[in-house]
């Protein structure tokens, strides 16, 4: 899951980025409003976190710009003002949720999970396919009730696959959402990580869940 953080206070941006990275999200940080809008328009993010008070371009304008481009990515706004009207304006301009500073990191993470759920039809909380279950809140992965330990990147890759079950995911898509890099030479790494995942999830099981779609990418499904 790839997240863009637009926040001009360097330190605030940095700890948000680190907290998200520790949760295996791929994070881009931008301190400038206009640049941030460009990034949001050019890259397919899963969540945008936008501070409302920004130099060069206020957060509200970023929201409007994103929604005008018909991009439906969930947006979480950060406001320092506790005033209601700021929040109302933000929500009206297309934000999905808001947090007032100072905020608790746990709350930020919970809200991001909620925003990520919003797009899918699955039941809230646990992602499930066949007997494979992934709980984003606890980052616990089980198959057939058995715990599976994953590294941070493996987890991120699996979460992305599980959130898009039954869809073909190309290597550029995976690299964009799991690693915050957009180059194709990166595909090797992806193949390596998919193999790691296969070893931990499908190895020794009769039912394979991770499928290679020749010439395009990967897909998670029950066949």
């Amino acid at each position: 899951m790839r997240i863009l953080v637009i926040e001009d206070e360097t330190k605030v941006g940095c700890f948000i980025k680190r907290a998200l990275e520790e949760e295996s999200y791929a994070v881009d940080l931008c301190e400038d409003g206009a640049k941030g809008l460009q990034m949001a328009l050019n890259t397919d993010y899963d969540v945008l976190i936008v501070d409302l008070m920004l130099p060069s371009l206020p957060g509200l304008e970023i929201l409007k710009g994103v929604r005008q481009a018909r991009i439906q990515t969930p947006i979480l706004i950060l406001t320092a003002q506790s005033q209601v009207d700021q929040r109302v304006k933000g929500l009206d301009a297309g934000a999905d949720d808001y947090l007032t500073k100072p905020f608790a990191i746990d709350e930020l993470l919970a809200r991001i999970r909620a925003l990520l759920r919003r797009g899918s039809t699955e039941s809230p909380g646990v992602l499930q396919i066949d007997d494979l279950a992934l709980n984003p809140a606890t980052r616990e992965v089980t198959r057939g009730g058995q715990r599976i330990d994953l590294t941070s990147k493996e987890y991120a890759l699996l979460e992305y696959l599980m959130r898009h079950t039954g869809r073909v995911l190309t290597r550029p898509m995976i690299s964009e959402h799991v690693w915050n890099q957009d180059f194709d030479t990166f595909t090797n790494v992806i193949d390596v990580y998919v193999n790691y995942l296969r070893n931990k999830i499908d190895r020794g099981r009769s039912k394979k869940l991770i499928h290679t779609i020749r010439g395009s990418g990967y897909m998670l499904k029950v066949d």
């Binding site: 206070e9 605030v12 700890f15 320092a80 100072p102 746990d106």
Partner: peptide
């Protein structure tokens, strides 16, 4: 007062966020 609270909130956000993050593990 809204400016003042904004100016004070930013350092508070930094302190709260960084401290919480450090304590997570």
């Amino acid at each position: 007062s809204s400016d003042a609270s904004h100016e004070l909130r930013t350092p508070l956000t930094v302190m709260k966020g960084e401290t919480e993050l450090a304590l997570r593990r």
